[in-house]
Design a protein around this nucleic acid. Structure first.
Lengths: 334, 334
DNA sequence: TTGTAGGCGTTATCAT
DNA sequence: ATGATAACGCCTACAA
């Protein structure tokens, strides 16, 4: 790799002159500029970013830390982030940290070592010791957490969707349609993000004076996806008093539900309404198309990235917690 | 940010000693080690990656350049890449360059400036002036291209799926099932990657002595996705002599085809077989489940990443072109 | 308009 | 076992 000195030698000037031309500052005689440009071209010279960064202190790089390997669940968020990163002259480094706690911290540390200007951190679960580390780190570099792993008073910026009110709104929508026996299929694992959705469901029932029936709540494994939805729908529809609407904590379950209802020749939405959660692309391609509660992931990503840049540009502003409402996407199933 | 000197001062030693401890090399008295570790902890010291990189010359970073914003089309490839990057101590920087030619080169350049150790480059189309730049750049930093944009004799490593033979194999499969009137829905835009699939279709016909009927070939817009497949299937099935099988250049079209056949009450696969291309996750969730030709994108990513590391570790090895076969995934529609 | 010199935070060499 | 010193490639006063 050729350096600024090689260029200087070749052009017969000092490295200072080359540097000035690189940064576009200072005055140079056209003839000199010509010579130097020529030399750069011949050498295929590309300045070393690290030397520049070390000198100037800013890497123009933001890190995005994901808990999982790239999967389509994150693609919308990433697109949202990218929309704002792209136009900013920054570069984004995307890493999946895995769910392992140590690993997450290692990555965080590694990003700081690489002098990123800011970090977008995504994690499923609150891990106490990691929170402490996040708290300490956030004093050195702007961090925005995209999830529900922090308490209100913990001074780190956060962006997330209000799953509680979104689910509540979805349930209310069904109730307004006259459905009062509403089944709910939730995850068996209890992380904050999905638990609060369940709470929203419960609240909506209560607000409408509907008696809670534990038989209408089923748990399913996140891994089994569609199959799980299928199975649980069967159980629900075989109750002595089956539901007239089924909500699920995630679209994948809802797809299974629809599958079952079709097989059982139960009309959707006439006999049973189905309400998903997430609005994965698939919703629109099914028939019937799935009505669902959308988190607006693209918006989550965009909002988080904007917030991060806000903090990068003005480190004094302090943290902010942003709760996004999400949206009901009404299609064919409810 | 505290530096190595701060640590040295606090511990009452020289920065050399601290450096030695950092890298784990050299001998240090336990007491000294203790002191230094203590100082590092108190200062929350994280070494500057840039200074290290500048000194050592290796960033342990590979760049992945995609033509589009993150969308689920790339998630499998990215996962494959990550599987090999993850265990290597490297970090990956993912950028979407857009389809714009200038932009692509700017990003390439930026990655070199950031001293990445290698680049995985993904692009739709061959752009002559960019190829030259790629060629020049590949002398400075290992590059693996994941696509069909390079000629055989151009000395840059490449990994891609043999869409020609894969489609040929898919067509042969249908022919072996006794389907000789095979429709084909292709893209209207003509990029190398999709054109070669069409060639594979033609070859299979020829090899089996089936006369080519241009009426059986339809073109559709990539944007309109499912709708397009739906429309073109209608046209095909209204021919005086309709096909007994329909192949598509991409799964999205095939989904539309299935939609149409269902609506027209045409039995799949008894009356008409459907064969997609890509194996998007959705294939498995449809009913009937889509039979398709899988590129094995995860494998593409993994292979490309492995090849890149090979070149990083041993810059002498020279370029390699790898053609992956892909696989037929037999499900319900054929 | 151009050049000289010093420093960014680290590692590596060579003494002590 | 530890430390002084010179790089790494660039930027930036300041001097000429």
């Amino acid at each position: 790799m050729s350096t600024i000195i090689d260029v200087a030698k070749k052009a017969g000037v000092s490295k200072t002159t080359v540097s000035k031309i690189l940064s576009g500052k200072g005055n140079v005689r056209p003839a000199t500029l010509e010579k130097v440009n020529q030399a750069m071209k011949e050498l295929d010279y590309i300045p070393s970013g690290f030397a520049q960064i070390m000198r100037t202190g800013t890497a123009k790089n933001i890190a995005v830390l994901l808990p999982e390997q790239f999967n389509h669940g994150y693609s919308e968020i990433l697109r949202g982030i990218e929309m704002v990163v792209e136009s900013s002259g920054y570069i984004m480094t995307v890493c999946s940290t895995g769910v392992n706690a140590e690993n997450q911290m290692d990555y965080l540390r590694e990003m700081v070592r690489r002098q990123v200007d800011g970090i977008l951190f995504f994690s499923y679960a609150r891990i106490e010791k990691n929170v402490n580390y996040l708290l300490r780190l956030s004093k050195k570099v702007p961090i925005v957490v995209m999830d529900n792993i922090l308490k209100e008073d913990e001074p780190i910026s956060m962006v997330r969707v209000d799953g509680y009110n979104l689910t509540r709104k979805a349930a209310q929508y069904l109730i307004d349609k006259g459905r009062t026996r509403i089944g709910y299929i939730r995850y068996e694992s209890k992380n904050a993000a999905t638990l609060e959705r369940y709470e929203g469901y419960l609240t909506a029932l209560k607000e409408n004076g509907i008696k809670f029936d534990p038989k209408l709540v089923r748990e399913a494994n996140i891994e089994s996806h569609i199959t799980a939805g299928f199975e649980q729908a069967r159980v629900l529809m075989h109750l002595s008093s089956p539901p007239t609407a089924i909500m699920t904590v995630t679209d994948m379950f809802a797809i299974g539900v629809i599958d079952y209802l079709r097989e059982a020749k139960i009309k959707v939405p006439q006999e049973v309404c189905v309400m998903g959660f997430d609005d994965i692309p698939l919703c629109n391609w099914l028939s019937p198309k799935l009505t669902t509660a959308s988190q607006g992931q693209l918006n989550v990503g965009r909002t988080a990235a904007k917030l991060l840049f806000e903090q990068i540009q003005n480190p004094e502003v302090g943290f902010r917690k942003i709760l996004l409402p999400g949206d009901l996407i009404i299609r064919d199933t409810a």
